[in-house]
């Protein structure tokens, strides 16, 4: 499988994400630049890393969502291939419309950076099939705008279609609707989440994120 990590000005989790995939020894991993207009023909997954693309100016993810590479990513996603957005990547996917909703400023108004317990809400997707349903996992969070907001009509739709990927467990660090930490697209092939599984792929600090990166190849 070939994985492309998209780099924007201000991305800062691109190398972590690259290593998280590469470490599994299952994938060919490459970097892509936001000004590229075409994706490699043999790409299987496009990953958008965390960071502060374009300084979070205007709205988080808004300027990145109009970058030259985005049209290709939308076509790629619409052809049923995999897209993963973590943190700023999730914010960008929401701004492109590939995922419903938007990430607003944390209700505390503070940047929050800590370990966070999550619950796996759907263990039947290509990203999550190595986790157990309702399993508790520890992924770090580090964001200022992680407050997931969606209108009631869309919220009902994402519940009906089993699109909730992860929920914050035991506490809500940012004010997200229903403690939502990550969601899938309707076809469950696009995943966006605020927490950072790529920071939990070593035995020294924890391996809870590793199965997310391994599961895609199975």
């Amino acid at each position: 499988m070939k994985i492309g990590i998209v780099v924007f000005p201000g991305s800062n989790c691109d190398n972590d994400l690259f290593r998280a995939f590469e470490k599994q020894k299952l994938y060919k991993v490459i970097f892509l630049w936001h000004k590229d207009t075409d994706l490699p023909k043999d790409l299987d997954l496009c990953a958008i890393p965390g960071g502060f693309s374009f300084g979070d100016y205007l709205r988080t993810g808004a300027i990145a969502s109009k970058s030259p590479i985005i049209n290709s990513i939308i076509k790629f996603a619409n052809s049923g291939r995999f897209v993963l957005g973590i943190c700023n990547g999730f914010q960008i996917l929401c701004e492109t419309g590939l995922l419903p909703g938007i990430l607003l400023r944390n209700t505390s108004t503070k940047f929050v950076c800590k370990n966070q317990i999550l619950k796996v809400c759907n263990s039947n997707t290509s990203f999550s099939k190595l986790y157990n349903e309702n399993e508790e996992v520890n992924f770090p969070i580090a964001h200022h705008d992680g407050n997931y907001f969606v209108n009631n009509e869309t919220k009902k739709m994402i519940y009906d279609n089993n699109q909730i990927a992860f929920k914050y467990h035991k506490n809500n660090p940012n004010g997200s609707v229903d403690n939502i930490a990550g969601i899938y697209s309707q076809n469950h092939r696009i995943l966006g989440l605020m927490p950072h599984p790529e920071r939990r792929v070593s035995s020294e600090i924890g391996l809870d994120g590793e199965r997310l990166f391994r599961s895609l190849n199975i």
Binding site: L58, R59, A62, E95, I102, L104, F149, V150, N151
Partner: peptide
Amino acid sequence: GFLTNPLV
């Protein structure tokens, strides 16, 4: 399309 997010 860009300057605002009409959702919010």
